[in-house]
Each structure stands twice: as structure tokens, then as C-alpha cells.
Design a protein around this nucleic acid. Structure first.
Lengths: 151, 151
DNA sequence: GGTAAATATCTTAGTTACTAAGATAATATA
DNA sequence: TATATTATCTTAGTAACTAAGATATTTACC
């Protein structure tokens, strides 16, 4: 059975995830994108560039939906399409990192500064504890997700 | 300037939020709901019951969208509509907690067990550190969100 | 080398959930 | 009582999705 202390931590971690979504959606809206588009643009920034097919696999969207996604980004000049040299069927999506940064950095700036300050307020040992919790919780969630998607 | 250690913690907390969304969407899909519907159903469970208008304010959806939302829940027999005694214009949405639990508990069961075990693996002092991080991070995010929505 | 199969992306038709604006019904106010 | 306000619903139009099929390129086989 779950005791009160465990429950409190669990509830707080739930609220953390939820609050994070709300913030990301607010940032996206402010940048003229939907929450999902913001999320997927993050993938591109993270990876640098990828093909339309890779983005489809990564996002779980159909290839048709990915075509639309890239169209929206391209119209805003946030990415460029180019054919792969080695296989001209493939479409490489190249994010304009500079342009994207210019769009988002002002919106994230204050948040990032405060976050860094918060993290810095913990000792190395304390940060280690927080990181351990995050790592293990992520593992559990990924496990749950992949089991659900399989069955 | 951000150092590597800070960066690592920040990245991990980002990944945590992202992974959490993925899991919630997987659970929702499995229950035959969309990710957003799952989220909003959570509001209802949390609060017990509320009027359509309150749900509209809480979710930020238009009243028309809320009508559709309730229709979808009602069709699945997850909630019931009834008029408020004191003001018959108001529609009270009453969640069938039992039915909703029956739907979601099996999907969450293993995750919850593992989460509780993880939380229990930390000492009271360690849990306190994790909770402090969460609380303060939530505050920062809420601050950012409300500022963005205001401007 | 030429033909068939496979692959990567795009297009089209149909669906779902949203918004904006206005309709309906109940309540509050003058 | 008549009018204004409020709470929800309805309607018309839009955006982003899926499924299925079209198009273009590459790979495999004889």
C-alpha cells in the first residue's frame, strides 16, 4: 500500500510533467506554432538534420502527416528541404538553427536563467540524487510505454 | 554561463517531462482516448465534478469545444451530464470514477508499483531534496507560462 | 542492361477536434 | 414585466491527422 509520503512525491512529479507541458505549449503559441510542432522541431534541432522518413518513425506520424509538418516549417523558413546526394528519393530536412534560436531564445531566456540558478543552488551530491531519480523514472516510463505500444 | 553539470541536470529534467508525455499518450491510446482527452479527464477525477464552464476556463478551450469533449466522454459512459439544482443553465459534469478507474488502473498498475518502489528507495532526506527541486521548478514554469499568456 | 520489386515521399479523400459567432434557454436586474 | 446577462449548445469553417494510392528513384535478379 502506498503511504502519504510516497504519494506526495508521486503527485508532485505528476504535476511537474503537467506544468512542463503547459509551459511548452505557451512558448509554442507565442512563437506561432502548435505544441506538437514545437516538440517535433526540437527533434530536428537535437539531431541536426534527418530525412522525412526518420522524422516519421521518430514521431509516430504517417508519412503524409510528416509532409504537412515539413510544409509548415518550410513556409516559416525554419527548415529547408534538399534531396540526399546518395539517394534522390530521400528528402533531408535541414533546420535553420540560427533562425529557430532567434525565434525561441527570447521566450526561453528567463526560464533558462532561473532553472540554471535553481540547479546551481543544489550541491553536487544533491544534484546526483535528483539525477538518479530522473534517470530511473525515465527508464520506468519508457518501459511502460514500449510495453503498451507493443501489446 | 552554463556549465556541463548544470546542463546535464537540465537536459535530464527536459527528457523526463518529454518521456512522461509519451507515456500518457500511450496509456490514453490504449484506453481509446486521445492524449488531450486523457489529460482533461484527469481534471475531472481530481476535482470530483465541475460545470462545463469551469472545465472551459480550466482547459482554455472554447465552450463549443468543451461541449464536444463532454459528448465524447458521455458516449463512452465515463461522465454524466446533469443540470445544477440552483441554476438550471449550468451543466454539471459528474465523472463515473469507478468506471474511469476500471479503465485506467490496469494500464497504470505496473507503472505505479515501480514508481512507488523507486520513491521508497530514497531516504526521507533524499526525497525532500527531490521534492524541493520539483516544487521550485514548478513555480518557475508556472511563472514563465503566466507571463507568456499575459503579454 | 532491362524488368520487376522495393523504398521514400507526396497527394488525395475523408475524419476529428478545434475556433468564432450566433442560437437557445434560464436567471438576474431595473 | 421587460431587458440584460449568463451558461451551454449549435453551426460553419479550418487545421492537422490517417489510410490508401500515385510518383519517382533505387535495388535485385535474370
Amino acid at each position: 500500500m502506498e503511504n502519504d509520503v510516497t504519494r506526495q512525491t508521486r503527485k508532485l512529479s505528476q504535476l511537474y510533467a503537467f506544468t512542463s507541458i503547459q509551459m511548452h505549449e505557451a512558448i509554442a503559441r507565442k512563437a506561432g506554432l502548435s505544441g506538437t510542432d514545437h516538440k517535433y522541431l526540437g527533434f530536428l534541432i537535437e539531431k541536426g538534420q534527418m530525412t522525412a522518413g526518420e522524422l516519421s518513425t521518430l514521431t509516430g506520424l504517417t508519412t503524409g502527416a510528416v509532409t504537412g509538418l515539413i510544409d509548415r516549417f518550410e513556409k516559416k523558413k525554419l527548415v529547408k528541404r534538399k534531396f540526399a546526394e546518395d539517394d534522390r528519393r530521400k528528402v533531408i530536412i535541414e533546420p535553420d538553427t540560427k533562425k529557430i534560436m532567434t525565434l525561441f531564445v527570447p521566450l526561453y531566456k528567463e526560464f533558462r536563467k532561473k532553472s540554471e540558478k535553481l540547479i546551481a543552488s543544489f550541491s553536487t551530491r544533491e544534484r546526483k540524487i535528483i539525477e538518479t531519480y530522473f534517470s530511473k523514472a525515465i527508464e520506468i516510463m519508457n518501459d511502460t510505454t514500449s510495453k503498451l505500444n507493443k501489446k
